[in-house]
Computed example of a mutant assay.
Amino acid sequence: MKTFFCVLMLSPVPVIAAAPTFAAPRLDPLRVVATCAGRLSAQMEFQWMFDGSKADATKAVRASLIDILAAMTPPGQAREVLNWRVEAKIAQAALLRRSMFNPDKRDARWAQRAAQHKIGACRSLLLT
Rank of each mutant, 00 (worst) to 15 (best):
R79I: 13
L27S: 09
V61K: 01
S11Y: 11
L8A: 14
E87G: 09
L10Q: 11
L95M: 13
A70K: 08
V86L: 13
R97F: 13
A114I: 13
L69D: 01
I66H: 04
E80H: 05
G38L: 05
T58D: 00
L10M: 15
L30V: 07
S11K: 08
Q116N: 14
L27A: 08
W84C: 01
K2T: 11
I66Y: 00
V13P: 02
M1S: 14
I66A: 01
L27I: 09
V13L: 15
K118R: 14
K2I: 11
S124N: 04
L125G: 01
F50R: 13
P29C: 04
A78L: 05
A94T: 15
T35Q: 11
S124V: 02
A71F: 03
S64T: 00
L127H: 02
P75R: 10
Q43C: 07
F50S: 08
R79S: 12
I90K: 14
V32M: 02
L27P: 04
V15H: 11
W48K: 12
P74W: 03
A57G: 10
D104Q: 14
L125I: 04
W110C: 06
A121Q: 15
A94D: 12
L125N: 02
F22A: 07
T73I: 02
R98K: 15
A108K: 09
E87C: 06
P75Q: 13
V13R: 10
A115Y: 09
Q77I: 06
A24Q: 05
A55G: 06
N83I: 04
G52L: 08
